[in-house]
Amino acid sequence: MDRLQTLALNGNALQGSIPIKFEALTDLKVLALSGNELTGGLKEIYTLTRLEELYLSYNSFEDRLSNGSFQQLTNLKVIDMKNNNISGPLPDSLWQLMNLEVIDFHHNELDGHINDVIVPDHPLKYLDVSSNILGGGLPPSISNLQALTHLDVSYNRFNAKLPNYLATMTKMKTLLLTEDDEFGPQPLPDWLRGMTDLKQVSFRLTSRTGTIPTWFGELTKLELLDLEWNHISGTVPTQLSQLRSLKYLMLNRNKMTGEIPYEVSSLPRLKMLMVDNNSFTGELSLPVVPATGGQQCPSRVTHVVADCGNPDYGCPDCDSSTKKIACPCCTGCCYENQERCNMDDWLIEYRYCI
């Protein structure tokens, strides 16, 4: 079948490795083998020079890449290698492939650095290298990715502060930097203000300091704002009430004070609100809805956690002194010195639904 252009065998129970005879499929443009039980290496695909789309995710490939891997695949538009056992560097050769729009290597074992070799005007739109063991930092030439709309470098081992040269990437819609705590200590960057198309942004556990700027209210397309587990102080700006599309707001495990504005907690699309492990006071109010026999909390709000110290939520030592904030609609309550309250990484739950 040397004229075959598309081979799609996703979601079966195929085992073994890619056969050496695949090298004869010289007209192949789409190779889709995701969701199988394949092992071994990738060298059999490196000669498929007409390949445009490569889907090998959710297998057990265990090749070790080099900086020259994939360099012959100059027509490649999509490379999806997520959820394998691939090690080695993120190949430098990918930045020479001028048709490439999607790179997804999340949940592998990539090490080394993202090297400063990204060429100008590279057309990449989607880059996900999360859940690897990459070090170093984000190189200056990453600003050459002017078409990029999705960047996820979460859960790595970067050891350099977050650079300012991301400021030019104004088409960004998803920016996930979760659990790269060596990206700080730094305040929330001013260059976010220019990313007016942002829908999802996570700075969870990235050593953010300072306060939440009032101009966050200008990012009106935001659906997810995750600032959990930082060193952010000050109050919740009422300007966040301008985020009418916001569904997920995580401010927990910071150093914030004051009352939570009702204009923010009553946003019309809000599903999740995490404000525990701060020093908020007053009452966290959500808009109640009519119900038989009275009023009830809105059903669209699935998770609300605050420092409400309510004994009805597994808090045996709680009393009036442990309740920092009143929260009649909370689905979970934390209290002071309860070290492991609300320790879930909520990003894991929703990040692949983006």
Rank of each mutant, 00 (worst) to 15 (best):
M256V: 00
P287T: 03
S207L: 01
S60V: 03
L90K: 07
I325N: 13
T178K: 04
Q72F: 15
R340W: 02
L33T: 08
T26W: 09
D319W: 03
L249M: 02
A13V: 10
T292F: 00
N254F: 02
L65E: 11
F105R: 01
E223C: 03
P187G: 09
T331E: 03
L148R: 00
V117F: 11
S17N: 12
I348V: 07
S66D: 13
W229V: 09
A13Q: 06
E23Y: 07
D307W: 07
S69T: 13
L198C: 08
P163R: 10
N132Q: 15
T302Q: 13
Y155T: 09
V264N: 10
V236M: 04
P139I: 05
I79V: 11
G41Q: 10
G332W: 06
P290T: 02
E263C: 09
T214Q: 14
P120R: 01
L76E: 13
N277E: 01
P287V: 14
G11P: 02
A326R: 08
D180A: 12
L100Y: 08
K171S: 15
H303K: 15
L225M: 06
K255F: 10
K173S: 06
V201Q: 11
E101C: 00
R157V: 11
R253C: 07
K171L: 09
T235I: 14
Y155F: 12
N277V: 00
E52T: 00
N84K: 06
V102M: 04
Q239G: 02
T331L: 05
I232V: 06
L176F: 05
I212K: 14
H231D: 10
L249I: 05
N164K: 09
T170W: 09
V289M: 05
S321N: 10
T47Y: 01
T39W: 00
L14Y: 07
Q242A: 12
K247N: 07
K199R: 08
L205C: 00
E179N: 15
S131N: 03
E336A: 04
L110N: 11
G184P: 00
Q242S: 02
K82W: 00
Y313N: 04
M272F: 14
K271V: 01
L54H: 03
Y313L: 03
D312L: 10
Q146W: 01
D121H: 12
D307G: 00
V117C: 07
E218T: 14
D312V: 04
G137R: 08
N164P: 04
K161H: 12
V119W: 15
L31Y: 07
G210A: 07
K43S: 12
Q239E: 07
C341A: 04
L9S: 09
L198R: 13
T331M: 10
T39E: 12
T211Y: 09
Q146L: 13
T168I: 08
D121A: 10
W95G: 10
R244W: 03
V153M: 11
N99I: 08
L42R: 11
P139A: 13
L286G: 07
G234V: 03
R351Q: 13
N156A: 05
D2F: 07
L124Q: 09
K255R: 11
K43D: 15
M172Y: 05
V236W: 04
C297W: 02
N342F: 03
S143R: 04
K173I: 01
E52Y: 05
I20V: 01
G194L: 15
L138R: 10
S266F: 05
I118M: 08
N67S: 11
L192W: 00
S207A: 14
C334A: 12
A13I: 13
M250F: 00
Q200Y: 09
